Simulated assay, not measured.
Amino acid sequence: MYKYVMNNRGGSYLLAISLLLLTTFFATYFVFSYESQIKIYNSLEFANVRATINLLEEIGSK
């Protein structure tokens, strides 16, 4: 295995695998970051809608 990694083809293979893993890591990181932002925006929107409904109920009861 050591001789295979040390020749040109083995080094290229090792470099390709490491770049694939690195790219996969960053892609999953950005996907999870985007999903987290979407969840935050949805929760803020829900809170604003709930506050608006409460305000309208308060105005309607007067």
Rank of each mutant, 00 (worst) to 15 (best):
F30V: 15
N54H: 04
T24D: 09
I17H: 02
I40M: 04
S12Y: 04
V31E: 09
L19V: 06
R9M: 04
N42A: 10
G11M: 01
Y34P: 05
L14N: 09
K39V: 03
N8W: 05
T28C: 12
L19T: 08
I38D: 11
Y4N: 03
N42G: 07
N7F: 05
K39T: 08
G60S: 06
Y29T: 15
K39P: 00
G60E: 05
V31T: 13
Y29Q: 15
I38N: 09
I17W: 04
K39N: 11
L19I: 07
T28E: 11
E35D: 15
L20P: 01
E58F: 01
I38S: 11
I40V: 13
K39Q: 12
Y13E: 06
G60I: 00
V5A: 09
R9K: 03
Y34F: 15
R9F: 06
Q37N: 14
Y29P: 06
V31W: 01
S18Q: 06
E35T: 13
A16D: 01
L21I: 10
I53N: 00
Y2S: 09
S61F: 06
N8P: 05
S33L: 15
N8K: 07
I17S: 03
V5E: 03
L22G: 10
M6K: 07
Y34C: 10
Y29R: 15
K3H: 10
T24M: 15
T24H: 10
F46G: 12
F25A: 14
K62S: 06
A51C: 03
I38F: 12
S12A: 07
F46T: 10
E45V: 03
N7S: 02
S36T: 11
A47H: 10
N7R: 02
K3Y: 08
G11F: 00
E45D: 12
Y29G: 13
E57A: 01
S61P: 06
E45H: 11
S33N: 14
Q37C: 13
S36W: 08
Y13K: 04
T28S: 14
L20D: 01
L14T: 08
Y29N: 10
A16R: 08
K62F: 08
M1R: 09
N8H: 07
T24I: 14
I17D: 02
F32Y: 15
L19C: 08
Y2V: 11
E58A: 02
A27F: 14
T28K: 13
T52W: 00
L44S: 12
I38C: 10
T24Y: 13
R9A: 04
T24F: 12
K3L: 10
L22M: 14
